[in-house]
Amino acid sequence: MDIANFAEASATLGHYLIVSGLLFGIGLMAVLLRRNIIILFMGVEMMLNAANLSLVAFSRFHPVGGGPAVDSQVFLFFIITVAAAEVAIGLAIIVALYRAKQTMHVEDLDSLRF
């Protein structure tokens, strides 16, 4: 592979989508395997960011009117905002739970059983 070719080479849509899918998968693994509620939250954040990456990649590779498709970037704003709101609420509930129960583990959430 010569230098000129290397300078020219750039990633394709497929690259980005696969990477975003892998990020989503790692987030999913975090949710499924870890028991710490805060880490579960981090996993969910990763999943949301994977979706964001796909959106940006799609907007770059399907341009509208010369520039990237801005619709998806606007959507991304909404996602970031909503995620931030969700995190705020979630952490508030976690703090309240920690005050009541001194735990951070999903397995200790056992008052609701029949």
């Binding site: 509620i37 579960l40 969910v44 609420i89 979630g90 509930i93 976690i94 309240a96 959430l109 609701l112």
Partner: peptide
């Protein structure tokens, strides 16, 4: 109620 909140949230 808090536990329900956490489960619902996640």
């Amino acid at each position: 109620s808090l536990e329900a909140g956490i489960k619902f949230l996640i």
